[in-house]
Amino acid sequence: MAQATEWLDIAALSDIPQQGARLLRTGAGCIAIFRTHDDRVFALDDRCPHKGGPLSEGIVAGHTITCPLHNWVFDLNSGQAQGADEGSVRSYAARVEGGRVLVSAEMLTRRSAA
């Protein structure tokens, strides 16, 4: 079952603004790719568990994202809601290598596997 992570080359890091995000369309829904102030990248389902807000449109600060609809705040790494709110967003492995953004191929098959 366990396999080495398969990585997909998605884009150049410079395609995503610092402290910003861009969207990735997949067959099973949209994924938000975030770039933080320190040039880390993170991948989360682009759907707030509260009311479905597009997280890719929120404000990136530190390693958190604030949902644009009702200000829920999520940890970009774990996808866990912060503070008093309870809930989580699915997160996927992502990294930068040689100026390219790589995301775990697991995101493509996520719902068919479930």
Binding site: R22, L23, L24, R25, G27, L108
Partner: peptide, 15 residues
């Protein structure tokens, strides 16, 4: 206009 469109569309790969 790029920043208003998705970074990539992987729906074909998924299929």
């Amino acid at each position: 206009r790029d920043e208003f469109s998705p970074l990539a569309d992987l729906r074909l790969e998924a299929a």
